[in-house]
Amino acid sequence: MGAIKIKLTDIVFFLAILLIVFSIFNVFFDIITYDSLRQKITGEVSNAYVNISVDPSLEINLSSSVVNWSVGTINAGEVNATLYTRGSSNGNVSRGNWSGVNAKAFIVENVGSSNCSLFFQASKNASTLFLSSSGSNQEYQWNASNKEPGACINSSGLDNGWTNWSDVNITSGGTKICSQIGYTDNMDEVYVDILLTVPYDALNTGSLTDTVTLTCNAI
């Protein structure tokens, strides 16, 4: 086995590749520390506030207006599958292969300058959404919780463990889910989570959709 002769051009070639690799790593590192990069570029500081006086107004913001589970099926041998959102985390799927990546809670934020009452109304209930032939193994429910502590004032009944779910209401006006959402920053966001139990014998298949209405009334 003879010794390998290394030319100067080979060394330069190797160093150039090495430089490219380290440049890529540098870019990668800046991306994963995006927040600090953004502050360096824009001067934006997340906890800086400008306070101005305005007329009382009512305004709400919705983080995302769709909960989407994509395409999926019930696992073999199961009579239903349960899908539910869990605040800002990915949605949970049991006994099925739907994706929870785009299934996150509706986050309602009071960005106005007055408190309001929040109501939730669906267009369909579990029966009209799935139309189970046996009339069982189907659920369409909601759950409300504080994203920021104290957002729903005097909200001792609000659930943060995704254990207390209520059937959606399709009657006009819907269900009051919070009597008073405050508008103080850091105390003005609530989660509205959705739970679906998909029955194996649903007569409605294919693309299933529903439109819910989130109403905020001044108080």
Binding site: L58, V66, N68, T209, D210, T211, N217
Partner: peptide, 15 residues
């Protein structure tokens, strides 16, 4: 009209 999954629309009420 919502398309795909559970869509939400907003409604506000001045008193």
């Amino acid at each position: 009209t919502g398309e795909g999954g559970v869509a939400a629309k907003l409604k506000v009420g001045a008193l």
